[in-house]
Design a protein around this nucleic acid. Structure first.
Lengths: 194, 194
DNA sequence: AGCAAACTTGCAGACTCTGCAAACTTTGCA
DNA sequence: TGCAAAGTTTGCAGAGTCTGCAAGTTTGCT
């Protein structure tokens, strides 16, 4: 067996809470929803809610998955143009999200209902950025870290902007096309500078 | 008279609270300090604290000043290289901060003691970014707004990184040199891309 | 002086979140 | 199977943030 009963339970409860939170906040708005309401809907006590999540925000915002290891290696040893190889790496990461597509869209919509939530989301992105920086640093090992950080910020910000802006467009597109759109925007932006 | 007594009082109280908050958080860390402690130190009731500030965070993080109008006009009509003109604009904005230099340094230090505070700070930066975007859009009116947003994010992120990274360096440097350092980093970063 | 508007304060109360200890469940092992 | 250890849930008490309201004070103005 891959998971013990206990583990499966834990995952299920966590998921129950996340879904309860998301659904409630989607209809009512983050600020109007109390932890008590979420707990009740998820069928646990308020105290249990806080056993699973540090605060209300983190029931909505979960950490994005890591970059897949093979894709990372391929990128680090890649010989193509930086932006092209990056595109491949990021697409690989985005594929992982495909299954939760629906929840992710809801999250993005809920984020718009609260400053605090947006901030939490950005904090999560910052963590992703730190991993991302490490990866790019491995490929460009002679470039100062600060520049790599700047580069990563730039890329993630662009992706974020594309994702928040292009809601209410067709929902059915492949989630990885966001990567393409973001990197295209990025390339255009860079032409502005010189 | 430029200000009524009432107005002067209000400004003074606001300042008292901000200073009390900053000093306490600087020594104790943001999370250890209660609004009650801040109020007491500032000599007002806890209820008054919330008449002045929406929450604990905003007693620490205040909105950055607007870009000075003449500098904005000069930039919008500028004919130089984009990055060079930007440098001038941003230096003008940073000059305004020179007086509060000491408090700003403290704020940056306090920000490091709390995720929430960092998030609030970023929200404030996002507001600045929006104004910044408007300005650049006026100069590059035929460029899509999304690209301008990306560009602005990039610039502000870089400045932010430089400012947070280069604490514990010599404190006495002109605050506007951060702008230079950031834009230099930026130019180097851009060379990585093609 | 005296009135209206602005400001401060205390109080009650809703909400978030934590520590603790008691009850309950699952697991590993005899 | 049965039992102890480990992990989970829950209730409760309590600290802390923040709001609405109403009463009291101060200020601006005539």
């Amino acid at each position: 067996m891959t998971e013990t009963l206990r583990q499966r339970r834990r995952n299920q409860t966590s998921r129950d809470i996340r879904i309860a939170a998301l659904e409630l906040c989607f209809t009512e708005g983050f600020d109007k929803v109390t932890t008590e309401a979420i707990s009740t809907r998820a069928g646990v006590s308020p105290r249990t809610f806080f056993n699973y999540f540090l605060n209300k925000e983190s029931a909505i915002i979960s950490h994005p998955p890591d970059f897949p290891a093979e894709a990372v290696e391929a990128f680090v040893n890649g010989k193509g143009r930086l932006l092209d190889d990056l595109r491949i790496l990021m697409r690989a990461q985005f594929e992982l999200l495909q299954d939760d597509r629906k929840m992710i869209d809801m999250v993005h919509s809920v984020i718009r209902t609260s400053e605090v939530l947006r901030a939490t989301h950005e904090a999560a992105m910052r963590q992703l950025q730190s991993k991302f920086t490490d990866i790019i640093q491995r490929r460009l090992h002679d470039v100062p870290r600060q520049q790599i950080e700047t580069l990563c910020s730039l890329i993630l910000i662009t992706v974020g902007q594309v994702m928040t802006d292009s809601k209410n467009a067709d929902d059915t597109r492949d989630i990885a096309t966001y990567v393409d759109e973001a990197l295209d925007t990025l390339e255009h932006t860079l032409k502005l500078i010189p």
